Simulated scan of single mutants.
Amino acid sequence: MPRNMRELTCTAQERVNMLVANISNPAPERLPLHVEEITTSWLTSALARGHAGVTVESLAVSDVMYGTATKVRVHPGYNARGRELGLPESLIVKGGFVPEYRNLNAYIYEYEARFFKEVHPHMHANVPACFYAETDARSGQSIVILEDLRSRNVEFCRVQKPLTFAQAAANLDAQARWHAQFWQSPELDSGGELTWLAPQDPLPDGESGTYHWGQLKPDVFASYTQLPRGAAVPKRFHDRDWMERALLDLRAFDRIGPMTLLHGDVHLGNLYFDRDGTPGFLDWQSYRRGPWAHDVTYFLISALDIADRPRWERALLEHYLERLAFYGVKEPPSFETALEAYRRHIVYGLFFWLVNPVEWQVEVNNCAVAPRFAMAALDHEIHDLIGR
C-alpha cells in the first residue's frame, strides 16, 4: 500500500479497529448458498473471527433484498460477550444467494470481499463498516457482513433526487482524496500489492467482456432502444456501430493515464450521506485501476439534474482538480486536459444506462439517468468528437 498514507480520522479508525476481522484465520465453515442457511451457528462462527467469545443465540430475518447481489437484513441476539462488545442489533449479510446470479457474478462478489479485507483498511473512503468478508472458492460464493446503515439514519441517495451543488462538491472531495492517495501509485503497477486489480475497460476482451459485448449484439442493443428509456435518448445514439467505435475509442484513450484506484460505479444508487453530510460509498464490486475521469464523469452526469449539470459541471470539475492538489497530487491535470477527458468519458455512462437490464435497475431509474447522459453527450458534441 502507499507509504505516505495520512492517518485515518478518529471516527474511521475506531470503526476499523472494532470491525475489521482477523483475516489470518481459516474460513470457519462452508459459506451459506441460500438465505435459509444463514443460521445462528454460521453467524457465530463468522463474527467470532474478529470478536472472540461472541455467540449468536437467536436470529431473525426481516428483509431479503434481491439484486445483483442479495442483501439480507438480520437481527442477532447475542450472548453477554456480544452485548459487552456492543455488536449491532441488525446487520446486512450480502452475497450471491441467487444461483444464476452467483454463477454469473462470482468474480464481483469476490472482489467486494477482497475490497473489505485487503483494500479498505488502507484507504480513505467512508464505506459501511465490515464485520466479516470471505470467499469460498469451492462454491463460488463470497459473503460480506456489513453494518446496517439504516440504524444510523443515513440518507440514501436515489436517482429521482439529484444532488445539490454542495452535495456534489462534497462527493468530489471524497473521490479526490482516495484518487490522490493512489495517484500513479506503484502499488497499481506490476509487482505492486494491487497489481491484481483489473483495469477499467469499457469493452474488455475475453471472458471479462462477455456482458459488455453481449449488450452490443445488434438484436440485443436494438431491443433496449425500443424500451421507454430509448424514447428519451436521441436516435443518433441508437446507432449500434457508432456506439462500438466510441467505446473502443474510449478504451484507447484510457490507456494514456494517469492511473488511480476507481470505485467504478459511482451512481446515486451506490451513494449515501451521513447525518453530518459526509458522503459514503456503497457496492464495492466494480472497483478498478484506471483514469480518474471515469469516476468523476460517471458521477457528475448521473447525479445532477439535467438543468443543473451544464451550469455547474465546470465549477465542480475545477473543484475536483483543486482537491487533488490539496490531497497531494503535485501535477493534477490542467482544466483543459480534464475537460477533454470528461467529454470522452460521457459515452461510457450513455451506453451502460441505455442497455441496463431491468433486473439490475428498474425502468424508471433507467429512464431518469439515460437522458442525463444523452443530454450531456449533445451538449459536449461527443457524436462528432469520437466514434467517427
Results as ranks from 00 to 15, higher is better:
residue 259 M to P: 04
residue 96 G to P: 02
residue 302 S to G: 12
residue 230 G to H: 02
residue 195 T to W: 11
residue 233 V to D: 11
residue 383 H to E: 08
residue 295 D to C: 04
residue 5 M to K: 11
residue 342 Y to R: 05
residue 110 E to G: 06
residue 5 M to F: 13
residue 270 N to R: 01
residue 31 L to G: 03
residue 72 V to S: 06
residue 379 D to M: 11
residue 167 Q to I: 00
residue 88 P to W: 01
residue 107 Y to E: 14
residue 71 K to P: 04
residue 301 I to C: 07
residue 367 C to D: 06
residue 217 K to N: 15
residue 3 R to P: 07
residue 200 Q to Y: 15
residue 187 E to F: 01
residue 285 Q to I: 03
residue 223 S to D: 11
residue 344 R to G: 09
residue 19 L to W: 09
residue 228 P to W: 09
residue 40 T to Y: 04
residue 218 P to A: 08
residue 75 H to G: 08
residue 28 P to I: 08
residue 211 Y to P: 07
residue 162 P to W: 00
residue 242 W to A: 05
residue 255 R to I: 03
residue 377 A to I: 04
residue 30 R to M: 07
residue 229 R to A: 15
residue 109 Y to K: 03
residue 166 A to I: 03
residue 62 S to K: 10
residue 121 P to G: 08
residue 17 N to M: 15
residue 61 V to F: 07
residue 43 L to K: 02
residue 253 F to A: 13
residue 287 Y to P: 10
residue 28 P to L: 00
residue 157 C to S: 07
residue 280 G to A: 06
residue 87 L to D: 08
residue 360 W to Q: 08
residue 142 S to Y: 02
residue 218 P to E: 12
residue 310 P to N: 03
residue 223 S to K: 10
residue 296 V to Q: 09
residue 366 N to F: 05
residue 386 I to P: 00
residue 223 S to C: 10
residue 67 G to Q: 02
residue 224 Y to A: 01
residue 354 L to C: 00
residue 235 K to N: 13
residue 146 L to E: 01
residue 11 T to L: 12
residue 10 C to H: 01
residue 78 Y to P: 05
residue 318 E to I: 11
residue 145 I to W: 02
residue 22 N to L: 05
residue 330 K to Y: 06
residue 194 L to T: 12
residue 385 L to G: 13
residue 350 L to P: 07
residue 306 I to K: 05
residue 339 L to I: 12
residue 328 G to A: 02
residue 6 R to G: 10
residue 156 F to V: 03
residue 265 D to Y: 04
residue 275 R to W: 05
residue 377 A to W: 03
residue 76 P to L: 04
residue 331 E to C: 05
residue 268 L to Q: 13
residue 28 P to R: 01
residue 342 Y to H: 15
residue 337 T to M: 13
residue 322 E to N: 13
residue 348 Y to K: 09
residue 69 A to N: 14
residue 306 I to G: 05
residue 25 N to C: 04
residue 143 I to D: 02
residue 33 L to W: 00
residue 54 V to A: 01
residue 224 Y to T: 09
residue 361 Q to K: 10
